[in-house]
């Protein structure tokens, strides 16, 4: 028992020390957000601002509202949320189904196609950008959100691979037993594999969400009107080539933008913990 307490205290010390390292960027972000512009990015660092400007958050959200072409921050947020919704649902639904096939069903050509699937991730993205753009041009989708979410409904190599590896860790005896009871593949997938894979599915959902939330290149090349922009494009408006960057406002806006992801993550974790109790049974 003594060993146990020792282990726990070591764990605690390690967790607290590492936490300081990992929370640093967020504290820096918040710290910069409440500074006057002349104290941002200072060396040696100004840790405590001479005056806390909490109004920066409000100002960041309303940045440029006195100008003619103003698009409210809220519109960008709305666009991003809708887009993320479509991508996350599509990613989870399609990849779970496809990965099941690759992980637990035997069919002719499966391993070959899986190898091809892996290979598609290995060609660097820049050389695919122009031909991919051409496809969406022929479909007449430039300027709409479709190029950004429709492909998510047809699977992605990364998520298929990830889920396949997870599905493979689930004992095959479980499916065999169900098959003897006369269950089809869909039933096995639906009532055995899915419930046991919540941690993995949450991870895939979270990555899809973050990927969409932070995606810059996709919206940059496909969207054509300011009011359709997403948050990651909106964050660019605090930079100005010839006028410098409003660091305090940019960081205030960035904090606001990552806050929802942080909240989503915080609650998603409950899924991981649920996983424990289920696997404990077997």
């Amino acid at each position: 028992m003594k060993r146990k307490t020792f282990e726990t205290s070591v764990t605690h010390v390690a967790l607290v020390t590492l936490s300081c390292l990992f929370i640093f960027p967020f504290l820096w972000l918040l710290d910069t957000a409440v500074k006057p512009i002349s104290e941002t990015m200072k060396q040696p660092p100004v840790w405590i601002p001479s005056k806390f400007e909490f109004g920066n958050f409000w100002e960041a959200i309303n940045y440029g509202s006195d100008k003619v072409g103003y698009i409210p921050f809220l519109v960008y947020a709305e666009n991003t949320v809708m887009l993320a919704m479509l991508v996350v649902t599509g990613t989870v639904v399609s990849n779970a189904i496809v990965a099941y096939s690759f992980a637990r069903v035997r069919w002719w050509g499966r391993d070959l196609i899986f190898a091809v699937t892996l290979a598609t991730m290995m060609v660097p993205f820049p050389v695919m950008m122009v031909p991919t753009f051409t496809i969406f041009k022929y479909l007449g989708w430039i300027g709409t959100y479709r190029p950004l979410w429709v492909p998510a409904w047809f699977g992605s190599a990364f998520s298929i691979f990830l889920l396949r590896q997870f599905f493979k860790t689930i004992p095959f005896e479980l499916s065999e037993a169900a098959k003897i009871d006369g269950a089809g593949e869909w039933t096995i997938f639906r009532s055995i594999i899915l419930p046991l894979s919540k941690p993995a599915l949450s991870v895939v959902a979270l990555f899809a969400f973050m990927g969409t939330w932070n995606d810059f290149m996709g919206p940059l090349i496909y969207l054509l009107r300011q009011e359709t922009f997403t948050l990651s494009l909106g964050l660019e408006f605090y930079h100005s080539k010839a006028g410098g960057t409003q660091w305090n406002l940019l960081m205030a806006a960035t904090s606001i933008v990552i806050l929802p992801v942080l909240v989503v993550f915080f609650f998603c974790q409950r899924q991981f913990i649920k996983g424990i109790s289920i696997t404990g049974i077997k």
Partner: peptide, 27 residues
């Protein structure tokens, strides 16, 4: 998303697209 991405047709004016890399006060 579909509503947002499809603006109403303008019966009067011809729309032209002008793209710039300016932001902030330059924009």
């Amino acid at each position: 998303t579909e509503l947002r991405a499809h603006p109403k047709d303008d019966p009067v004016k011809t729309h032209i697209a002008v793209w710039v890399g300016w932001s902030g006060f330059e924009y």
